[in-house]
Design a protein around this nucleic acid. Structure first.
Lengths: 241, 241
DNA sequence: CGCCAGGTTGATTTCGCTCAAGCAATGTGG
DNA sequence: CCACATTGCTTGAGCGAAATCAACCTGGCG
């Protein structure tokens, strides 16, 4: 009973690599066991929803593997990507904390393995271990800062500048820079989703990409981006073009 | 010592009307005294800054009276209004919580009376009374929801729709609706600031206002708005015009 | 009285959206 | 294995919302 009560080949929380960098790193062994026992694991294939905007929260989700997009739909059904979430991150904590309903829909961008932990269990854990609550507090506060930044950028920056910002951001997780300053990124997203993340249409993004190539700033082949001189991308932003 | 150590005519925290609706409502008498003793009051006249974007946090501010705008400046110096904050609300809690620097500047929109509470004092209070931490948690989580909503609206809605949304929001605090459905709002902001709040230029806002008047939806005289039929404003938004 | 900041209006330009077509890659069924 | 849908991406043409530039008006205020 102490190991893998459900799922095939699911990693035990004890050996979960992501734990160290997640909010749950503050749990001790006993609490971790408690956590493990009250969780349930599920696989989602690309396109499946983990929760929908408007659903009332009944727990939090911990992403073990895969990639999840947080979407918001407008009246016409067009989706904007409000954020993307990778392994180790916890989903749906905001609505759990205020006890309301989700403000975004969480959709698997590619196949995912997700652990679900019941509201009551999380509440109990926070009750016994205040450090956990503090972890969540930091998480929300951080996200609020990012949201503010993004809001401001959305209103003041051009699509091009927002897209370059995004590339630089994606580089941290999915890219690398050689010592000559060449930056290579393996994008985890389709053009459509990149567009949704920048808050524009696929057509406009395609044109923007074309211009970046014409300007010699970055070259796109499929989901791979190569920027010969990473600094020239940075300087782009300071000058406000 | 137990009353007004500083400021002229400053209200003691014990009798502060705002307290009931603020995060500090969970403090007991002893804690409130502790709070009172470690606070300092200051007046700001319109246009003065309480803190600047990039400053490192060294405590939180509690707005006793007045109105504060949270601004972000772009490269050219144009300001966007990220939010406005009225009496009773606490300022700068986000950077206090994560321990980083402020992501916005707080500027007095009109003359304000602001209490400052040192980081250490707040930390101590949260330490002894976990309910206070929980209050802040709820506050941040709520604000994150709003920020997400605003971000999405900024990308998908027209200036007109965003402005109507804003009016409806301002109505809650600064307006009233008669039983005939007539809505009257006394705007607390200049046109410039309204424009900054919607994320547009003053010229565009002026034109938007003109169109609303031509459509018979709302009439503007100085800082007073009259909307003959409040529901027609609402329906405006559902139809996505 | 003239000055000045805030607000409105007009003319023009620009950026990004919409609509529409074309194209490449992948899949599907006969 | 080929004809064909289907899906994702790109390109083009036209349009519309909002920014920009500029003038002008208004109401305080020294």
């Amino acid at each position: 009973m102490s190991r893998q009560p459900n799922g095939h080949g699911s990693v035990s929380c004890f050996s979960c690599q992501n734990r160290q960098r997640s909010e749950w790193c503050v749990l001790n062994e006993k609490e971790l066991d408690q956590f493990s026992r009250s969780k349930s694991v599920r696989e989602y294939s690309a396109g499946e929803f983990i929760y929908h905007e408007g659903d009332t929260s009944n727990g939090v989700y911990c992403l073990e593997d895969g990639l999840v997009g947080l979407r918001k739909y407008d009246v016409e059904g067009n989706a904007t990507l409000v954020g993307i979430v990778g392994p180790g991150r916890t989903l749906g904590y905001r609505s759990f904390l205020v006890g309301g309903s989700h403000v975004t829909s969480a959709e698997a961008v590619r196949s995912c393995r997700v652990c679900f932990i019941d509201s009551k269990a999380v509440r109990d854990l926070i009750g016994q271990n205040p450090a956990l609550g503090y972890q969540f507090l930091r998480r929300v506060a951080k996200d609020l800062g990012h949201a503010t930044e993004r809001y401001h950028q959305g209103l003041t920056l051009s699509v091009r500048d927002r897209f370059v910002h995004l590339l630089l951001l994606l580089n941290r997780k999915y890219g690398q820079v050689t010592e000559e300053g060449e930056m290579v990124i393996d994008l985890p997203l389709s053009r459509q989703d990149l567009a949704a993340l920048v808050g524009t249409r696929p057509e406009t993004l395609a044109r923007t990409i074309r211009k970046l190539e014409e300007d010699g700033l970055a070259y796109f082949k499929g989901r791979q981006v190569v920027a010969p001189h990473a600094e020239s991308l940075f300087s782009e932003l300071d000058l406000q073009s």
